[in-house]
Design a protein around this nucleic acid. Structure first.
Lengths: 178, 178
DNA sequence: ACCTACATGTAACCCGTTACATGATTTG
DNA sequence: CAAATCATGTAACGGGTTACATGTAGGT
């Protein structure tokens, strides 16, 4: 799904500015999508020209003014239509797995550093997700999607931790005389 | 990592044609990258102009001729350099999680169909990976990356299967009078 | 004095997918 | 006979990231 439709989705949860939309992605949705400002702001303008959102300006004290966007009726039905046509595919591009795949071209120290960095990244992502986990007020689907993200990240952590020392050992001795 | 460098990596495993490179991605690497012909063929031409690969033509009986590419010394060191500069990040874009997140906007039937489709997709991916699993002759890193892919996919399957009926039940009753 | 958060936006650039074009051969 | 496999390639199109530009306010 592209940034435009993604923004429509976030606005379905409530009015928001471009900045706030980005925050929402980072807090709750970063495990499956997180577009940058460079695509969010242009998307909002396009949504406005299409008549799917309206804009109002909210002045603030000691803060820059916000441009708050609201879904129109058309925007609402547009998002429902997009959702019903979206295939549940998952696209993963993992440079970590790639590096592991070509680990025989790296030193054991390099490999160890890569794995450690990967563990750290997952741990941080996990904390972000756990911070929003367990809210009773959320719809079941949202809770499911958050729990799913957590479970999959924990599976990664568990696997890497379990196989780390063996990997490094075998890596060090790979190519040794048989 | 972009298609050019990815091709360099595959060619590091042995000479291959564009078609064969694509096959390699689909068989062994699809869980983290799988570029299309539309990016592979142009990439190979660029690699050739850069002097990182050479091309030879291999005629075949009752088959179109192949253009086999081989890494040059420069190509080899170029890939090592790229590898050592690659950060182990993972980017996942999951329309499945997105659909789950907005499940309250869908009917229970739609949700059930989506989850089922997702399960089927994972099962197929898993079979592909398991087909190449357990080869003793592969370097430890390659085995690790394959096992990692399998483990993560199994975690997904397990989670979805475990929570499926509850999700659908809660979804059906969500919004009911408290 | 500097960094972070708040807040919006543009433009260059990179990059990839999809769809099309071509054509022989094998398999169901 | 139709569909899949082998084999290469192009072009249009869509889409996003990065980096830059601007400015205030609060914290260290």
């Amino acid at each position: 799904m592209n940034t435009q439709d993604l923004c429509l989705g976030v606005l379905h949860l409530g009015d928001a500015s471009g900045y706030e939309i980005k925050q929402t992605f980072e807090r709750a949705l970063s495990h499956f999508q997180s577009p940058s400002y460079g695509s969010i702001y242009p998307a909002l303008r396009k949504l406005q020209s299409a008549g799917w959102v309206t804009q109002r300006i909210e002045d603030q004290d000691k803060r820059p003014a916000k441009k708050i966007y609201s879904l129109t009726h058309e925007g609402r039905s547009r998002f429902l239509q997009v959702l019903s046509q979206t295939e549940p595919q998952e696209i993963c591009k993992s440079d970590f797995v790639l590096l592991a795949f070509f680990a025989h071209l790296l030193s054991t120290d390099q490999l160890a550093a890569i794995v450690q960095q990967h563990l750290n990244t997952i741990e941080m992502d996990l904390e972000k997700l756990q911070a929003i986990q367990g809210r009773e007020d959320l719809p079941p689907g949202m809770r499911f999607s958050i729990d799913y993200g957590i479970e999959v990240k924990q599976a990664r952590l568990k696997f890497v931790r379990k196989h780390l020392s063996r990997l490094l050992q075998e890596h060090q001795h790979y190519g040794d005389p048989a």
